[in-house]
């Protein structure tokens, strides 16, 4: 594919940049290359980390120096120009909106002059693309929040946001996989575990997935939590 640039990220990683604009087609290409590298790793390659417009490849310089890695990656990138792009999965995430699970949903509704029901309808109607996982294990950087729902972060971050919380921060929406401090506007919570270190892969989502949120009543949340992971 055209339009990529290699540069070292220190002595044990290479950063491949594909333009600087958020673009779904570019992201698909980048994930295809990541898959290809994972299936055919070069000697000393440790892992590759996709983000929005970059793919960062980590390696052990005992096996190969930067010039060799650069040459090897250039070959792969040139060969991959016409590779078919893998479609991602669609993952449905049940969310209990509002109430104790989503304490900021009324703020979000008021901020835009919507009703709570309208916020839920808009948040569940959209399809979101997972661009990267980061910030905490399994945390998805999602694209596709309806711009009408974009809401500034809380003025004061919470010291502890419970695992499973679904939030909005600016034009981003996401789900907290583990309890962490955070300043996002919390509108709901999912009973699904996004980080599951006892499984492989250890996360519910992967870059390239499409996420859809589905509203569930609070009784369903409790049943889900008690019954364990039923899907």
């Amino acid at each position: 594919m055209n339009g990529w640039q290699l540069c070292p990220l220190g002595d044990s990683a290479v950063r491949i940049q594909f333009g600087d604009q958020l673009d779904e087609t570019v992201h698909r290409r980048l994930l295809t290359i990541a898959d290809q590298l994972r299936q055919h790793p070069f000697e000393g390659m440790e892992e590759c980390v996709p983000a929005y417009t970059t793919l960062t490849v980590f390696y052990n310089p005992v096996h190969m120096d930067y010039a060799d890695v650069e040459q090897r990656l250039t070959e792969v990138l040139q060969q991959m120009s016409d590779a078919p792009v893998q479609p991602g999965r669609t993952v449905e995430i049940p969310v209990c909106y509002g109430g104790a699970y989503g304490p900021d949903i009324e703020f979000v509704a008021l901020h835009h002059g919507f009703t709570v029901e309208e916020v839920i309808a808009m948040h569940t109607a959209a399809a979101y693309r997972v661009y990267a996982l980061g910030f905490s294990p399994g945390f998805p950087y999602l694209g596709g929040l309806p711009t009408a729902l974009a809401t500034p972060r809380r003025a004061t971050p919470r010291l502890a946001v419970p695992a499973g919380s679904v939030g909005i921060a600016g034009v981003q929406t996401g789900v907290y996989p583990v309890e962490t401090p955070g300043g996002w506007q919390i509108i709901g919570r999912t009973p699904l575990a996004l980080f599951r270190p006892w499984e492989h892969p250890p996360t519910l989502l992967a870059p390239g997935d499409t996420v859809r949120f589905r509203a569930i009543p609070s009784e369903a949340f409790d049943a889900w939590a008690e019954g364990g992971r039923t899907s």
Binding site: E47, L133, F135, P197, P202, T203
Partner: peptide
């Protein structure tokens, strides 16, 4: 090693 792409 090998889990950065999962955010680990």
């Amino acid at each position: 090693t090998g889990y950065r792409r999962f955010g680990v």
